[in-house]
Design a protein around this nucleic acid. Structure first.
Lengths: 222, 222
DNA sequence: ACTACGGTTGAATCCTGAA
DNA sequence: GTTCAGGATTCAACCGTAG
């Protein structure tokens, strides 16, 4: 199954992944933001949302199932849903920290009544215990946004390489359930880790495979 | 009631504050963490921290009761309990953002298996709608820690002045339900705002009043 | 005025050993 | 077995002092 991107929902892929077989999970899930109101007076009926977060509980369970003992999981998250994600992840994993990915510039949003968003959260979880590689870094990680993105929420390759490097060894297996344009695969190739990915959108599957092939071809030149 | 620090629980103080009478609330509540004061040197009074957040729901309700329409609330928080605080605040206020107070250096904690804590969260809430003063700042706020602290979790005066300046006008009333060593009062005096505070620890009440008196005496020199 | 250097700090967590 | 008190621990950033 290794070093392949599967054009299917994560639910299909994890069915074929054995328990205790993955060394790291990096996930950039759909945040489900637009359809959720924090307010007590719900304007939207959650049941009728295409983009609800009902899958979260099952997803966390499957993640901890396929993770080896003493491994990490990173889950990107917006502050809008940090409470829900943290709660669900805590059911089956230990939430050790919430990392702050500080970007080089701010995003859009409420221009007059709000502070400008400049970061994403990354929930850092552990199954069992595991040391981080290298020196003791802080929980604020500065990383420039990706230029010329192929996916709206594409993460910087450097950032993913950093996380992979902190939490795995060469040859380990990294699973990304929402692979998008394939950044996790690229990061793993450069860090000499194995990877598995799921992605339901065929356009992004194609984009990711193109990027991966370019990356592999560059490797064989040496 | 104005420009006074009350030696009592916030529950006692808010009983005497009229509805719709406060322009801003700044709160640095006990986080309710499993906090054992086992620091290198026992330097401060232990914080009243019984790992019990049952008061949160009532507290939020009272806060929104005394807040004028179209005003803000800031609540300091650790990532450990961000889910609980965000959920409770969302019951009666709109959580607009989670600000990150980035400190100049990291804290202690798990030295090998975790990233080093370098920030506190500040939950930014609004009752109704209100514009922020000044330019559009980002939701990551860098501010140096206070030197020679009088309280173990004392916040930088500059940081509180900044928040007061963003969310109130001169002469407005700011309430701090957990005033500690009085930083909010100092910030309000310097920004020409009125203030009300509650603090249950008599030592910190005395410390705060000393600071406040020094501050007021300095003002009368001019 | 500038640099070098020593001293101090941190909303914490793990581990050990005693009760 | 189980709880709990207390000691040890990193290292970047800051301050004050000396040169």
């Amino acid at each position: 199954m290794i070093n392949k991107l599967y054009h299917e929902d994560w639910q299909e892929t994890v069915k074929r992944i054995n328990p205790h077989s993955v060394d790291l999970i990096i996930a950039d899930p759909p945040y489900g933001m637009e359809f959720r109101s924090n307010h007590r007076y719900e304007r939207y009926d959650p049941i009728h949302n295409d983009n609800n977060l009902d899958w979260l509980g099952e997803w966390v369970w499957e993640c901890q199932r396929i993770m080896k003992n003493n491994t990490h999981l990173y889950c990107f998250c917006s502050f809008h849903n940090i409470d829900i994600f943290k709660k669900e992840l805590s059911e089956w994993l230990v939430v050790k920290n919430i990392l702050i990915w500080e970007k080089n510039n701010t995003s859009m949003g409420d221009l007059e009544g709000d502070y400008a968003p400049k970061y994403e959260m990354i929930i850092f979880c552990v199954k069992g215990k595991r040391k981080l590689n290298g020196r003791r870094d802080s929980n604020i990680i500065y990383s420039q946004r990706t230029q010329n993105k192929l996916h709206p929420t594409q993460k910087p390759t450097k950032l993913i390489r950093y996380l992979v490097g902190k939490s795995t060894e060469e040859g380990d297996i990294v699973y990304d359930p929402f692979m998008g344009s394939g950044t996790t695969a690229i990061a793993c190739i450069r860090e000499k880790r194995n990877w598995i990915g799921s992605e339901i959108n065929i356009q992004y599957v194609n984009t990711a495979n193109d990027r991966i092939n370019v990356e592999l071809n560059q490797l064989t030149l040496f």
